[in-house]
């Protein structure tokens, strides 16, 4: 498909570094955790998971995202998608745990909302650098209990999401989902591996995408060759055992960059 035009009808500054862009186009059939390729015309095209059926929530981190932040309400972008494999939705009556770090809350907030309509409990561990960067706290609170951590202690507990995870009895959760910086997810992986819970955990990964449609191979993971853009971006924990996850990723040229 060619990029479809999407007008930006509203923007919301969620935190000092993140902004939600609402489009006049809604991806009703999108699975939670799927992504769209967002074309900032004349600049670049970048993958973004949907934070609502009709919106993306973006952290300003580089050239492309900075240029996207310059586009005002009434402006437009091109969109292709939704692409990739999304989260496996919980079944009726199940108890789920969400572990979100920073802008990693973007795909997990819609999952929390979807889960809360069928699950017995939706617990969230939400981490951020500081109190201002806590993303979608209200959305998670609407769905169930939330444990908050901040790196600098400016809200609730000073520390990391893994500090809370260490103290929870994970055997009480039927499904666990996580998205955040890879180093955070690596530590989450370590705890859940120890607890024997990888089988019921899903990780949403980030890699550099070129084609975004599973052809070029730029986002293939070692050693399975799984494509993050097509076989992911959501992976079951067992698919990541012994992989490059948490160790390195490849840059646009294909060179390995250690985390």
């Amino acid at each position: 498909m060619l990029p479809l035009n999407a007008n930006i009808v509203r923007t919301v500054d969620e935190t000092p570094s993140t902004r939600t862009f609402f489009f006049d186009r809604s991806f009703e059939d999108a699975l939670t955790g799927q992504f769209v390729m967002v074309w900032i015309r004349g600049v670049d095209e970048i993958p973004m998971t949907l934070s609502y059926k009709n919106a993306i929530t973006v952290q300003r981190v580089g050239d492309a995202t900075s240029r996207l932040f310059e586009i005002q309400e009434g402006g437009s972008v091109g969109l292709r998608g939704p692409f990739g494999r999304g989260f496996t939705l919980p079944k009726r009556g199940e108890s789920v745990l969400l572990i979100a770090g920073g802008v990693g809350a973007a795909p997990l907030a819609p999952l929390a909302e979807k889960a809360s309509s069928v699950c017995s409990q939706v617990t969230t561990i939400l981490g951020a650098r500081n109190v201002d960067e806590l993303l979608f706290l209200e959305r998670f609170l609407q769905c169930g209990p939330v444990h908050i951590t901040t790196d600098d202690g400016s809200a609730h507990r000073c520390g990391f999401v893994t500090d809370v995870l260490d103290e929870l009895d994970v055997s009480g959760y039927d499904r666990i989902y996580t998205c955040g910086p890879e180093m955070m997810m690596k530590n989450v992986f370590g705890i859940l591996e120890r607890e024997g819970a990888l089988q019921r955990t899903e990780f949403s990964l980030h890699r550099y995408f070129k084609c975004g449609i599973g052809v070029c191979g730029a986002c293939c993971m070692d050693d399975t060759g799984l494509r993050v853009c097509k076989d992911g971006p959501v992976f079951n924990g067992t698919e990541l055992v012994g992989s490059e996850f948490g160790k390195y990723a490849r840059d646009p040229s294909g060179q390995k960059k250690l985390f």
């Binding site: 990029p3 070129k210 975004g212 070029c216 646009p252 040229s253």
Partner: peptide, 10 residues
């Protein structure tokens, strides 16, 4: 690094 995206469309 190659060209900027979009680099492939169907």
């Amino acid at each position: 690094e190659g060209h900027s995206n979009p680099s492939m469309v169907k």
